[in-house]
Every structure is written in C-alpha cells, then in structure tokens.
Design a protein around this nucleic acid. Structure first.
Lengths: 221, 221
DNA sequence: AGGGCTATCTATAAACT
DNA sequence: TAGTTTATAGATAGCCC
C-alpha cells in the first residue's frame, strides 16, 4: 500500500480508471463549486466520460456562461479568420442587399450541417445579422408596397372624380339637349370651372382615403 | 497561523479573495487536466472571475464540447422543459433556487422575454422558429399587399375604361350634336380633351413604375 | 498581482467490504 | 459500482517578499 505519486497519464486498468474517474470527477466538481462560492466566480464545467456520459456543473446558467465565453474569446480572436463576414457593425445600405444574399447562402450551408470552422459567436452574429437583414428587407418591401398602394389610391380617386364629372357633364348635356341653346355655352363654362375646382380639391380627399385604407396595413405589421 | 477549516462562503477580504481565486483556479484547472488525462475524459471548463476576466480550458475543442453538451442536455430534457440548470454534477439545490431567480432576470434582460427553462438547443430552435415565423408573417403581409395592389389596378383599369368611354361619348355628342357654336365652345372642348389625354397617358407611367417596383418583390420572396 | 514557505487541510490511491 | 478505511500525495490559507 505504498501509495505512489501516480503518473498523470491514462490509467491502463479499466476498473481503476473508472473508479478514479468517479472520484476525481466529484472532487473536481466540488472544487469548482467551492471556487465559485469563495471567490464569487462564475464557472461552467462540462465533463464527458470516456464512455460518453455527460456530467456538468455551472454556477449560474450554462447557456449564459457559454454565450459569455463566446463573446470573450471572440474578442481575443484575431479579427480576420473565418470566411464569415461578421462585420455586424455598420453595414451600409448599398452593401446590405448583396450581403444578405451571401448570408442566405451561408445560412443554408450552416443550417444544413457544416458548422465546423465557425465559432459559436460567429453563429450567433450570423443569426442576428440575418434577422436584422430580414427585418430591413421586409420593411423596405413594405414601404414600397405601401407607397405603391398610396399612389394607386390617389389615382383611383382622381379617376373616380373625373368619372363622376364626366357623367354629370353627360347628363347635363342630355337634359338640356343639343337643341341649339344659348344656355349651353354657360353650362359648358360652368362645368369646366367646377371641374378644375374639383381637381384642386381632390388631393385632400385622396390623402384622407389613403390614411383610412392604410390603417389595416399598419395593423398588419 | 492556526489554519482553519475555511468556510465555503464568499471571502470578505478582497485581497484574500483574489489570491484564493488565483490559487484555487490553478488548482481547479490542473485537476481538470489531470482527470482528462488519467481517465480519457473530455472536459471543458469556463471560469469568469468576479471582475469578468475569462479563464478557460478544454481537453479538445471548446466549441465541440459545448455543442456536444447542448445535444446531450437536450436529450435528457423532458419534453415539458426543465426549470433550468442541468443539475447533474454536485450542485446544491438550495443555491439553485436562489440562482433561478437571478437567472430569470438575467435572461429576461438578455432576451427581453421569458426564456428561462430553455437550453441552448431550445433557444436555437426558438430562434429558428422565430425566423420562420418572420418569413411567414412577411409573406402573408406581402400577399395581402400584392392582392390589394392587384385589386386597385383592376379598379383603375375599369375606371379608365369607363372614363374613356364617357369621354368618347361626350366628344361624339359634341361633334354630332351641338356643332353650331363658335370658338368659345371649341376652346372648351379642347381644354377638356387635353385634360383627358393627360389622364389617359399617366396610367401607363404608373404601370411601368409598378412593374419596376414590383420586380424586387418577386426577388424578395 | 506573483512567487515562496509551511503547517495544515483535503483529496484520493489502494485495499477491503 | 459504491462506500469505508488509511496512509500519503496534493492543495492551499496565512504570511512574507
């Protein structure tokens, strides 16, 4: 029982190795907890046995610690490495479109399977980027569509107004008949005058209409 | 120097705490390495000092281990989500309760929502879901807007057609009927005609614009 | 901070249950 | 595979530089 100074190398005997694993693992977890408590440190510890069994401990949230780790280690990483253009900083509007395309492609790859070569932080940044991109694309699209609709509504109002005007004009022509009259001249003039007034007035109506009809879209957003 | 059995609770003295942190941290990392070597285990260890400094160790790839951890802990999670914490190792339950509260808060801050009880993999899934949801919402919105535009265009066409008809009608009345008037009438008629020409012309512009603007939507989808 | 010392505490190898 | 024992290797608190 002359306990030796045990070599730090893989223990050959399976049983002994398992026993040692069990014992030392507990010791390790205990020490981790102690350190966490004593020194107010945040600790995450993940251990896989040789057989693949998982043991873990975290002083707070494993996820949060992992995220924090990703962020920190990212800082220390040299700016240039992965093929990912994770320059989330300030993507200018001109670039974003193209960038979005590339990202979509990369995302496909990534979601598919090939996560190797990418750090956790890269993945997170990527997802954030895509989300932001998605939002921007959606908003832009939305704005354009709304603008289009607004224009069309204005146009519709104009046409309807003119339509009404023409109908009225036609009606008056019919009533008065073309039986050669002096009144006719006056009517024509009046008609034209009113028409122009309407043209000047209508834009306001259009604005109202647009606002009213535009509401549902806002809700839809 | 009657070294006591030191209580496992936060060390009050800052200096002593820092020293202890430094010493014990080294010890912890050493033990982790030893366990890894002796028992052929895979170990990831992440430590944040109270001041936020990061120390970590992993027997192989940190990322790989973290991923593996995500997968494993996901498996073990009951479908009805766990309160948080893979409380495997030797974590003390009393502490967990308190930490749960803190974590809930932290996660709220982090995500802006109640995501506690979700593991890394759950969050990833969630994000994916959100993204998909975003797409669906966007598409639905898009469809609605496009449908609206389509309706408006149809309406526009109808109005324009009617408009043209009315205008032609009016012209014919003028020509055939009351053609016995002087320049006054002619001027009036011309004025109206020009106006209508403009009206007829403009819609084409709009159509072009629509097509131009419409293209990006198709691409966007 | 960081290293060294030393008395003492803690972890654990080995053997046994 | 786990707990107990025991002797010893290893870790570390307190102190000094």
């Amino acid at each position: 029982m002359v306990r030796q100074k045990i070599q730090i190398k893989k223990i050959d005997n399976l049983t002994a190795r398992q026993v040692t694993f069990s014992k030392r693992r507990r010791g390790l977890f205990k020490k981790a907890q102690e350190l966490s408590t004593l020194c107010d440190a945040e600790i995450a510890l993940i251990v896989f046995s040789a057989t693949g069994k998982l043991f873990d401990y975290s002083s707070s949230s494993m996820m949060q610690l992992i995220q924090r780790h990703s962020l920190q280690s990212e800082k220390s990483n040299k700016p240039g490495q992965q093929p990912l253009h994770t320059q989330s900083g300030s993507s200018n509007h001109a670039k974003i479109s193209k960038e979005l395309g590339d990202l979509t492609l990369e995302l496909k790859q990534l979601m598919g399977e090939e996560l190797q070569g990418l750090g956790m932080s890269d993945l997170m940044k990527l997802e954030k980027l895509v989300e932001t991109g998605l939002n921007r694309v959606g908003k832009t699209k939305n704005d354009k569509l709304l603008s289009e609709i607004s224009k069309l509504k204005t146009r519709e109002s104009e046409l309807m107004a003119e339509n009404a005007r023409l109908k009225q004009e036609a009606n008056q022509r019919q009533k008065l008949g073309c039986a050669r009259n002096g009144m006719e001249q006056g009517n024509s003039a009046e008609s034209i005058t009113n028409f122009h007034q309407d043209l000047v007035h209508r834009p306001d109506e259009d604005s109202d209409t647009s606002l009213k009809l535009g509401l549902p879209f806002s809700n839809g957003n």
